[in-house]
Design a protein around this nucleic acid. Structure first.
Lengths: 196, 196, 196, 196
DNA sequence: CATGAATGAGCATTCATTCAT
DNA sequence: TATGAATGAATGCTCATTCAT
């Protein structure tokens, strides 16, 4: 029923990011999103099932691009150390470039509506898988310790990047997020490399 | 005006944890919390300013204990490695023992209402400070690398523990969270210790 | 934001007069007004800011017509005595024709909410001004004593008409209000005319 | 059940006048009146049936004294002109001396709750009767026209005094109400005296 | 496809009143 | 008498969603 393409579809998604970043998901009325998208209230429902569906679609759309971009940039790196570096850099730089989106993903999407969690899960799995790939490749190449537990290591990586970003959002994005890349990379490498 | 002590105060907080864990904050009607606490609707407002205040008080009350317990247990450890171990263990074991509370802190409290963020900030700062203390002590003792950046390292630690817990909550607390302690401890130690 | 025209706007105002006359302002639930107007509760808020705004709008709408009608009828009278007569007659006859409205204006609108007082003040000023004009004209023509104090005289006129009407409303509108016109006219004329 | 005497009874009534003058009847919570009277909430209900009863009792208590004072002062006057003068003077001067009370009687008591109207009616009747007596006496003495209609004349007198006072209250009691006495007296006399 | 007026279910909060102490 | 903690009914208002045009 809901048509998930077209110029207005994009306009609504972009409007939703702005309004939700500004007001929070629960305070972001559908009518305000419609207004921001220069579209009638009813039009929203030609493209989305309901309000939750806006949030889910928004996340999948934006996070899908995010994952795709990260994947591509990682694949362009050669050494495993570079891949890890690029992973960190791409994560932080992408979010620091779209602060409204960062606010929405770091804060607003941490809500419990099971429907939202479900809708979101798939893309997140892809991202987790992408991180896992880097870890496994590093282990196979003997760069990372062979006894690393992939899932835990991935949670450390994602958890750290996520915490760093959330903390930056909570502090109003006042400092330069990307400047953390080197330190984080270094910290991870030490933890993941075997001792010589 | 709102009396923040007494048996009913506690009963309401505990009821709120259960109801919010079950339904999520926005779907948790005040009247349902009252019912769960076996108290009249109006009684809630003798102890709390408003619905937000329930969430904030709940967090401060529970998280205050959490931080206090962790601090105490850490102070009882002797070596710095043990302290780090206890920090991880206390974090995960405490949350894994009260799954309703874990659900609320990991999911429901990640909302953006500036009022809630503010009300929560203080206790979180204390916890961050506690982690920082361990890191700094380890550096001073020469156990951790002297070039660690405290803030980033703390974000790695907290971010990892938080991600591990959130992930566990999202998967319905189906597995044993505490079993991760050793791996995480090991991972952190490697990242934080100096290279020999 | 609130659209102050249209068929539903009128329907709501008329319904409000009836419900408020029946129950009093504070006991008149918005939902009852909506039901009486055959409109959904929420529709009220497309046309009015809030409950107070219904009362204010109602008054301005109805009292605006009242003042306009009185002004027109006075202007059609020729002698000053006739104008005074018409003023009295128009006041009493209009209110006696719409008893629900009379009840609302005489009783319900005498409340202190400063917001309501403000919203009402403007129309009342116009009416007071209309009375003043008649008094001044009579003085200029030498029909009324030249030492009349306009403001006090106007308060006598308005106060008397108001008291007569309130008293009639309080007694359930059981007698004929208009039959008082001659006596009142006579009483005023004697007080206002110069002594010979 | 409710004990209508005693020091606390008076304290509550006086507190009610102040609180209602300040906030209006509907916004004046019983608990605030209790606080102002330095009495527990429940104590109110040892002296009054319910909130309406406070308003009614307050009015009867205060207005009873008002009528009594006026009656006494009128009876001390000798000529009928003086009696009319004293009537006007006593009305305005008493209310201008207690502005809180004036606010309550002129504004807050004009509400429609039939229970309140009833409770109030009796004292008002006494006051109306007092005015009537002056009018009738004047007619019998041949000072006032023999064709005066007592009820209408009384409504003119009461209506004028009431309007003058309400208007003064609405303008924040900024000017001297008593200074109107002479003009009003003069105006009434001319209207009520026979033509020579 | 698009509109936006209309809908009506849903909910936090207040406050007069009670009653065990 | 006096207290004040507890009660719970009552209601204005919001806003996601629909549907006639």
């Amino acid at each position: 029923m809901a048509k998930k393409t077209g110029e207005k579809y994009q306009a609504i998604i972009d409007a939703a990011v702005r309004v939700i970043a500004r007001q929070g998901y629960y305070s972001a009325q559908v009518s305000k999103i419609a207004k921001e998208a220069k579209v009638a209230d009813g039009t929203i429902y030609l493209y989305f099932e309901n309000k939750d569906d806006i949030l889910i679609s928004l996340f999948n759309e934006k996070m899908g691009q995010f994952v795709e971009t990260n994947r591509k940039r990682i694949s362009e790196a050669t050494t495993i150390e570079q891949k890890l570096y690029v992973l960190i850099h791409a994560h932080l730089s992408q979010l620091s470039m779209d602060q409204d989106l960062a606010k929405v993903t770091q804060i607003e999407l941490r809500q419990s509506s099971p429907i939202i969690s479900e809708g979101i899960g798939n893309v997140m799995k892809q991202y987790f898988h992408l991180i896992d790939e880097v870890i496994v490749e590093g282990m196979e190449q003997g760069v990372f310790r062979s006894d690393l537990e992939v899932r835990i290591t991935r949670k450390m990586i994602f958890g750290t990047l996520d915490e760093v970003t959330t903390s930056w959002v909570m502090k109003q994005c006042k400092y330069d997020l990307v400047s953390y890349v080197d330190s984080i990379h270094n910290l991870f490498l030490l933890g993941m490399k075997g001792k010589e």
